[in-house]
Simulated assay, not measured.
Amino acid sequence: MRAQAGNGHGFAPSAHEARGEAGGERPGTPRGMLGQARSKVMAYVALTKPRVIELLLVTTIPAMLLASRGTVDPLLILATLFGGTMAAASANSLNCVVDADIDKVMKRTARRPLARDAVPTSHALVFGLLLGAGSFAWLWWATNLLAGLLAVATILFYIFIYTMILKRRTSQNIVWGGAAGCMPVMIGWAATTGTLEWPALVMFLIVFFWTPPHTWALAMRYKEDYRVAGVPMLPVVMDEAGVTRRIVIYTWATVVTTLVLAWWTGVIYAAAALVVGIWFLVMAHRLYTGVKAGEPVKPLKLFLMSNNYLAAVFFALAVDSVLGFATLGEILAG
């Protein structure tokens, strides 16, 4: 679950639905009723920010495979993904409830369901709470109590600490608030082993350090949106040179941490982490030097690339775990 300064999207009505609203299909007709029902369902789906959930779940399966060195039961993976999806959907839906006021004034988020009054606020609140309760009950029943408690802690942290306190008060909001997006690896590890161990913490730190450069690159592109909404994202309160310098620092921290994880993995992961890490570093440094030189820069390229980077790191981790080669720690131990 990659918490996040957000790249969720609302769903605009289709041309077919627009014609129906304009009178081409009367609301009382079967086709009109079907169109309304479909629009309502899609509005609730949009509340959950499915694209954000996809990114969070990318990290869950590799964490489970590493925890079991590739022998985890596929049904356990599916059960954990289902519970994790409900938890992330709960957090995102409740985030939409709390942030409805700023979503209305930001161009990037103006199409979210509550911003355009597609769903009553009270319904969205109940929807989010039910998803949260369901995620806890499901994970406890299908995996173990620790995984369920971690899911609840993630939801509470994301809503009360990040959304309600940090987001609107400090430019370091995403640094600490981004911890919620790191939790899927912990939940996956706990669901597999019933415990939390050092590799889970290192994976947590990979996502933790990755989140600021990923989010700040997006915020650089939409800083006027955040300024209008009164959200003190770092690019709103600091010049581009300062922001990109910090992006470089956190990118280095991310890459170094991925290499630390190699102690518990094989050569496939270690080689992949090194190669894509260099790629990530080159992109971050290029953004920084471009800003320093006064050249036009495209921070959205780094934002999109960072998604691919994280996916590549965890895909390599999954492959390495399934193949089950000796880990670096085992090799060095003789």
Rank of each mutant, 00 (worst) to 15 (best):
G266I: 09
P232H: 02
A124T: 11
I61S: 04
D117W: 13
A88H: 14
Y162N: 02
G148Y: 01
T85I: 14
P299G: 03
R38L: 15
M33E: 15
G329N: 12
K292I: 10
I278Q: 00
I247F: 10
A293K: 12
M233D: 08
L57P: 13
V52F: 10
A18Q: 15
H214C: 14
E330R: 04
H9G: 14
P120T: 07
G24Q: 14
T257P: 03
A311R: 09
V236F: 06
V291C: 01
K223G: 06
L149E: 00
V260H: 05
I102D: 10
G132D: 04
T244R: 01
T121N: 03
A15L: 10
K301C: 05
A200Q: 01
L57Y: 15
R26D: 10
V202H: 07
Q172Y: 15
L166E: 06
L114H: 03
G6R: 07
T71D: 05
G148N: 00
T195L: 09
N308I: 13
K298W: 00
Y44S: 07
L94H: 02
P13A: 11
F82Q: 09
V185F: 00
A133M: 14
N95D: 08
P213D: 09
K167E: 03
P13W: 06
T29C: 14
W263L: 03
N92G: 12
I268R: 04
R2N: 01
G128T: 02
T170Y: 05
G266M: 02
Y250Q: 05
P299Q: 00
V313E: 13
G6W: 01
L47E: 14
S90I: 13
A333W: 15
